[in-house]
Design a protein around this nucleic acid. Structure first.
Lengths: 218, 218
DNA sequence: ATATTTTTTTAGGTTAATCTAAATTTATAT
DNA sequence: ATATAAATTTAGATTAACCTAAAAAAATAT
C-alpha cells in the first residue's frame, strides 16, 4: 500500500517525465513538490526499493512500468473527481484542483468504478486533460501549445493548465474556455506575447505565460 | 488545522461521550481507536493544549465546546458522504462506512456545502443516523434500542449500527432495513434473544448482539 | 485499612517524512 | 585540463504518531 506522500512523488515523477519518457532530476522533483532535494533523495531510494522507479545515484530517476501504473491510477482519480466537482457540484474550473488533490488519495476501487459510471465514463476533465481508463490507457487528442500556433492559423482551445487558480480565472475573464475557436493574428517578438482573435470577433493580447499554458488543435 | 489523527480522536471521544455528556476514559478511547493507552495519553495532552478537550491526569477527558464543534463537522461530512455513496453511487449500506471514514477528512467547506445541496439537504444517513446541520445542530428522532422494546409492542426500525459490514449484511438478509415495521413477540431470558414479527408476516429470532444494534421508534 | 488489581501515565525508543549543513559527484567554463 | 559552479547525496536533527515496559495513581476486595 502506497502512502499519501509516495503517491504524490510518483505523480510528480510521472508528470515531469511526460508519461515516463524522460529521466527526471532530483531538483525538478523537489521544486515540483515544494520540498528539498535531500528529502527527494531519501524518497527516491524508498521508491526504488519498491521498484516503482529506477534510480542511480546522481543520475536522476525513471519511473518503472509498475510506478507508471500507480501514477495513472491517481491521475485517473484526480480527473474523475474534477469532473464530478464541476458537472455535479457546480464548482468553477479554478476551484477543483486543490480538492481533487485530496480526493485522489481516497482508496476504494469500487468508489472509482461507480464514480466513473455515475459520470458517464468521461474522457476528459474540465481542463481538457484526458482521463486514463481503468487499465491506465490514455486516449488524448493531438494538440500543440498556443504559443506554437503559427501566425494566421486558426485553432480551437482543447486544454489549459489546471493547477493555477489565478490563471484559470484570468482565462475565464478573457473568454477562453475549452472549445473556444481562435486565430493567431500576430506574434510579438520583443515580449513573446500574441494577438488573438477569439470566437471570430474579439481581439485580445496574451502574454507568453498565458500562451504556454493553453493547448489548441492545430 | 487538525490532523487526520486528531480528527479521529475527537470523533471517538465525541461518540464515546454520547455527544459530550459523559467523561471518557483513556482505555475506552484506546479500544475504540485500536491503539494503546500510552498513545492516547500523549494525544489527550495535545488536544488539551489546543483546548479541544478538558483533561486532568488519571481523570479521563471531557470534550470541549470547540472540540464538539470539530467532531460534529467530521460526523456531518461522514454521513453526507454515506448518503452520496448509497443514493448516487449505488453502494450497499454495508459498503459505505470504510470509504466515508476516508472521505470525512477531506478539507473543503465549499465541497460539503455543495454536496449537501446536491443531495437535497438530507437529515439522516443510510443507517438512520442524523446528519448535523452546518451549525452542528442535530435533530434526531426519539428512539430506543430494539432490546428494550417490550413484549407485545410494535415499532419501526429507525437506525442500525453502521460500522460492522457483517452485521449490516445480516440485517439485509433478515429483511431488516430502515422503516421495517416489527413486533416483539417474545424475549428469551436464557440467551437474551428476541422473537420478532417482521413486516407483520415473518417470524424471526435475533440474538442479543443484534437487538443491541438496532434502534426503533417506541 | 491495607493489599491487590486495574487504569493511566511516564520514560524511552521506533518509523516516516521532513529539514539544514556538509560532503561528494557531475557539469561547465576558461 | 583544471578550477569553479551546480546538482545531488549523506549525516545528523526534528516532529508526529506510534510502541513497550516500568512507575504511579486510583479502584477494588478482603
Amino acid at each position: 500500500m502506497l502512502s499519501y506522500t509516495e503517491e504524490n512523488y510518483l505523480k510528480a515523477i510521472y508528470h515531469l517525465s511526460s508519461g515516463g519518457e524522460h529521466e527526471v532530476s532530483t531538483n525538478s522533483i523537489a521544486e515540483s513538490l515544494q520540498t528539498k532535494a535531500a528529502s527527494v533523495s531519501d524518497m527516491l531510494k524508498k521508491l526504488s526499493v519498491k521498484e516503482l522507479v529506477e534510480y542511480r545515484r546522481y543520475k536522476g530517476v525513471n519511473i518503472s512500468e509498475e510506478g507508471k501504473k500507480e501514477a495513472l491510477k491517481i491521475i485517473r482519480k484526480h480527473r474523475l473527481w474534477e469532473v464530478f466537482l464541476v458537472n455535479n457540484l457546480k464548482f468553477n474550473w479554478d476551484e477543483v484542483h486543490e480538492v481533487a488533490e485530496q480526493l485522489e488519495h481516497i482508496k476504494s476501487p469500487l468508489l472509482i468504478k461507480r464514480l466513473d459510471e455515475f459520470l458517464g465514463y468521461p474522457s476528459f476533465d474540465p481542463h481538457g486533460d484526458p482521463i486514463p481508463d481503468e487499465y491506465g490507457v490514455i486516449k488524448d487528442k493531438a494538440k500543440i501549445l498556443l504559443k506554437d500556433l503559427e501566425e494566421g492559423n486558426e485553432a480551437i482551445v482543447v486544454a489549459v493548465s489546471d493547477d493555477n487558480p489565478a490563471f484559470l480565472q484570468y482565462c475565464s475573464k478573457l473568454g477562453i474556455k475549452i472549445g473556444t475557436p481562435l486565430k493567431a493574428i500576430d506574434k510579438l517578438e520583443f515580449d513573446n506575447s500574441m494577438q488573438l482573435l477569439l470566437d471570430g470577433d474579439q481581439k485580445i493580447n496574451v502574454s507568453k505565460e498565458v500562451s504556454e499554458n493553453i493547448w489548441v488543435t492545430d
